[in-house]
Structure formats: C-alpha cells, structure tokens
Nucleic acid binder design. Structure first.
Length: 268
DNA sequence: CTGGTCACCTGGAAGC
DNA sequence: TGCTTCCAGGTGACCA
C-alpha cells in the first residue's frame, strides 16, 4: 500500500483532526520496527496543531513535539467510532472523544515515534531527498542526482536519499510512461530523458492521489476495504501479460531484490 | 562515498 | 485437506 500517494491520501483524511484534543493513547503492541516510546502517552490533553507529510512519513504536530508515523509495507491509519473493537493487528489508538485514530500494521514494519525537536532534523528524516511533487524536482535536479551514478535508474528513483516517496509500484509505472527501461544506468540518462521521467513521476503520483482521494472520506489509509478503486497499472504485476499500448508481453526482472516490470518494446 | 545484501514480520497465494 | 514455499507496497544496518 503505502507509497507517497497513499500516505498523502491518509494525511488529507486526517487533516480535519487539527484543533482537536487528544483524550488518550492506547498501545496494544509496542514492537513495531522500533519500539513505540513510552513518552507518547504524554500526548493526552494535547491538541493537534497540524498534519503534514515528508516523503512517506506523516508528521503530526502536537505542540510539545511531533508524532512521526511511517506505515511500512502494510500499515494503515483509519478513523473509527469509539466503541469499535480493535482487530488482531490494530496496535495503537489515539482517542479523540468523538473518534479514534487507529494504527493497523500486520507486518509491523511501520513506526510510531515522538520527537521534540524539529522533525526535519530527526535522524530518520535528516537525509531525505527531494519531494517529487515539488518545483525543486525538475529535469536539472534529476540529472544532477543521476550524474556519475552507475546504479540503475529505478533504484535511484526508489532511493529516499535521492527522491522521496517513489516506491516499487510507481517507480515501474513512471518508467513505463517515460519510455525508459528500469535497468538503465542513471548516469546514462540525457537531460531530455530526465525531463520525461520527472513529468512521468509527477503524473503517476498525482493520478494515484486523485484515485485514492476519490474513494476515501473520513476513512483513511484504505486497504482497498472500502472499495477504493485500484489504479489500472500499465506494467506493475503484469508479467507476461500484453502491454496495454503495444501488446508485447511485459517483462519481470529483479533489481535489488525487488520485482520490476517493463515493456521491452515501449521502453528503451 | 558507492553499490550490494540482509534483516525485520505476517499473511495470502501457489505448488505439491 | 494440509504442508511447504514463495512473494509482498519499505528501509536501516552492515559489508566490501
């Protein structure tokens, strides 16, 4: 689930918590990627000041500090009615009187941390790269990032120190739109191809946010449970199926232990 | 610095 | 039916 679009949709879904007071915090399972700090029970009585996002991290400003939330591979946040029984992997509740913000994460690769300093200086955020939907992410920036790098362009795209938020699905999708093979060494990309790729990344992420946003209301971080519509992927998870554009069979390869998909005809 | 591999954890699907 | 194997949206830690 959670690449940048899913996190952004989640952020929008909980933005209306701004100004609301936290009644209490319940932790049922502390062992996520890192142990949830005891200090988060001090949140009770605090008011949410803002909800923002940096890469795949959600930042909830609570006045005295920030909650840092990462959804890992399988995490989701949802708003439920106060009497809703927690299910097996519902690890944390942040209660708001009228509703509960509930963190679910079956694989427990996610994180829930607390920081009192500026969140951008937190060790997990300090080295993050450019936001793909920002103006700063343009062809010159990507070209500079790729300069001299022998790594495959797909892996560069997925490296959060270069560009944040682009995960395994949207990396394959954006490369298809740009007509670039995932194994292309980053340093081989011309400024022109960088421009195509930048446009493709932005287009892919924006379309996914729109798709997610259309299906979610005050329920957030859908697992597809609310019939959230599945984006129609061009190549992702379509090994051997015909390319939607040219009918050639989609190839599946492995890069850095992750599956990549591309059309050998449309992508060069 | 760069690039490559491993590990963390659970559940669902495919294979036998 | 039941057991085994593989695979999954992320990313920090560690190695050469």
């Amino acid at each position: 689930m959670p690449e940048l679009p899913e996190v952004e949709v989640t952020r929008r879904g909980i933005a209306h918590l701004v100004g609301r007071r936290i009644a209490g915090v319940t932790v049922r399972e502390r062992r996520l990627r890192w142990s949830i700090p005891e200090s988060i029970s001090a949140l009770a009585g605090r008011t949410v000041r803002s909800v923002s996002r940096r890469g795949k991290y959600l930042l909830i400003d609570c006045g005295a500090g920030h909650l840092i939330v990462h959804l890992g591979m399988s995490g989701s946040l949802r708003l439920v009615a106060p009497q809703t029984l927690p299910q097996k992997h519902d690890h944390v509740d942040v209660a708001f009187g009228a509703s509960i913000l509930r963190l679910r994460d079956p694989r427990r690769f996610g994180a829930l941390l607390w920081t009192e300093g500026p969140p951008e200086s937190h060790p997990l955020l300090r080295h993050l790269g450019v936001e793909p939907l920002s103006r700063e992410f343009d062809e010159r920036r990507l070209h500079a990032l790729a300069r001299g790098r022998r790594v495959a362009i797909k892996q560069l795209l997925m490296n959060a120190r270069s560009v944040v938020g682009v995960g395994n699905i949207y990396a394959s999708e954006a490369l298809f739109l740009a007509g670039i093979r995932p194994r292309t060494p980053a340093r081989r990309l011309s400024l022109e191809r960088c421009a195509r790729l930048v446009a493709a990344v932005k287009q892919t992420l924006r379309a996914a946010i729109r798709a997610g946003g259309s299906s979610l209301r005050d329920f957030v971080g859908s697992d597809g449970e609310l019939g959230s519509f599945q984006t129609r992927y061009h190549v992702y998870d379509r090994a051997k199926l015909p390319c939607r554009r040219c009918k050639a069979p989609i190839q599946r390869i492995v890069q850095g232990q992750r599956a990549s998909y591309y059309c050998p005809n449309c992508q060069t």
